[in-house]
């Protein structure tokens, strides 16, 4: 009885992520979902599988609660670093909140101590912080700049829980508009401002107006490029991770609809933490839960008939370390067959 859900996938698409592995043009892969459904495990597993068929793969975590280090039992930082035991799989963790402070505050290190001297620069900083989603966008922009120079074949993003990710994805157009306005203003009033600020256009807290404008302009260019790339289904796809429970399913549906409005391709769902108790199992909780999960699995089957729905079992051990992840990742490609 336990295997019916697995077998019933025959009429739908393949219940694996093989399609992602085969689609060589893919450059950006996002892994997202509600918190605690196993995004990190899934993204690590996907990265491991991809590393087998691609020249080089980079795994990036944008989740402020970094779990990559935990998953691989290895410390990662802001620089891409090879994961122990692989020669073409690297990982990095970026702090979405860090980069904007770096960009805006980092320029005038010495004079920042005086709060009164903030003036124009301080205002700019406030202004920039006020734009929703700018932190994530900045980190993405920064990553993109780095990644371009590093030439990885595929980049996997282990994103922060749902809300954050989506906020970022709708963001570039907002920023583009704002920045276009700012650039226009600065080109019109630049000479006037420079008259006030002195010949070299330095702001009271040691920042330079022209330099800042150039930076913002650069950021804008990068972000608009990212935007077009993310909307190209040949380059980008989104893998939704969920568990067979109502809230998780609800969030996934919402996310898929929103992704559709942004024009971001998504055709894979990983259903994680499924229970497959043995027929003879006397565990009441497990059997009850299995029943509930089966109900939602059937619903998923019915609703997402154009998706690759991958079913992953809940293991008895934590999935940590290279070997366990490799074993787990194998199930992304070869569907898990529960023991009779």
């Amino acid at each position: 009885m336990a295997s019916t859900a697995v077998v019933s996938a025959d009429d739908g698409l393949e219940p694996t992520l093989q399609s992602i592995l085969d689609q060589k043009s893919l450059r950006w892969i996002f892994v997202g979902g509600k918190g605690g459904v196993g995004k990190t495990t899934t993204s690590c597993s996907l990265a491991i599988q991809l590393a087998k068929v691609r020249r080089s793969v980079l795994l990036i975590s944008t989740d402020p609660a970094h779990n990559l280090s935990d998953a691989f039992s290895q410390k990662f930082g802001k620089e891409a670093r090879l994961i122990d035991g692989f020669d073409n799989l690297s990982a990095m963790e970026i702090d979405p909140n860090g980069s904007i402070q770096d960009l805006l505050a980092g320029q005038g290190d010495e004079s920042n101590a005086d709060p009164l001297a903030g003036g124009m620069g301080g205002m700019m900083q406030e202004l920039a912080f006020a734009i929703p989603g700018i932190d994530e966008a900045m980190s993405f922009a920064e990553v993109l700049k780095q990644v371009k120079s590093l030439s990885y074949e595929t980049i996997i993003f282990d994103t922060a829980p749902t809300g954050h990710t989506l906020r970022f994805l709708q963001f570039p157009s907002v920023l583009e508009k704002a920045l276009a306005k700012i650039s226009q203003l600065s080109s019109q009033y630049g000479p006037l401002l420079n008259g006030f600020l002195g010949a070299n256009g330095s702001l009271p807290n040691g920042q330079n107006l022209n330099e800042m404008m150039e930076k913002l302009e650069g950021l804008r260019a990068t972000i608009s490029e990212v935007n077009t790339q993310f909307k190209d289904e040949n380059l980008t796809t989104f893998v939704c991770v969920c568990i067979a429970e109502f809230l998780s399913l609800y969030e996934t549906e919402r996310m898929i609809q929103e992704l559709a409005t942004y024009g971001i391709d998504t055709h894979c769902i990983v259903v994680n933490q499924l229970l497959f108790p043995k027929a003879s199992s006397g565990c009441d909780q497990c059997n009850a839960r299995r029943k509930m999960q089966k109900k939602y699995l059937d619903q998923i089957e019915e609703l997402y008939d154009e998706f690759n729905v991958v079913r992953m079992p809940l293991l008895v051990e934590e999935v940590r370390g290279k070997e366990k992840l490799e074993r787990f990742s194998d199930m992304l490609v070869n569907p898990y067959v529960p023991p009779e």
């Binding site: 109502f246 609800y250 609809q257 939602y296 059937d298 619903q299 998923i300 609703l303």
Partner: peptide, 17 residues
């Protein structure tokens, strides 16, 4: 009921939106 018939509910929801 969104809990009992999620697929139906979600499809309706899509149409609704």
């Amino acid at each position: 009921s969104s809990q009992d018939e999620f697929a139906r509910w979600a499809k309706l929801r899509r149409q609704h939106d």
